[in-house]
Amino acid sequence: MKELICISCPAGCRLEAEALENGEIRVSGNSCKRGLDFAMAEMTRPMRSLCSTVRTAFGDFPMLPVRTDREIPKSAIPEAMKLISGIVVEERIACGDVVSSLAPICEGNLIATSSGLISF
């Protein structure tokens, strides 16, 4: 039995997840489907979204906020942070634009979460 706090929304439901002998996973305490999905993933392959900042070449906006465009394996976070710390954005890109692929670490892209490089 594993006690979990669901991170899907601010309600923060307290979940209990148990791996049964037949390979099934029993989840209780969730109040919606997202809670169930979260607990299943926590018991098998925990996933997280990752948010950070990357350096830019522009003095008026030196740090561009970024996030992964999907959840990535929790175990991939240290490698993804290494990739992020080496990036310097040299074009004035907009919110939602792709900053970098996350390959070969995991699937997905890093996207900009601000239009600070193109507008005030």
């Binding site: 979204s49 948010c51 906020p65 996030r67 919110c95 939602g96 979460t113 601000s114 239009s115 600070g116």
Partner: peptide
Amino acid sequence: EKLAGPEYAE
């Protein structure tokens, strides 16, 4: 959606 802060402002 789960947006980052600057994205929500945007």
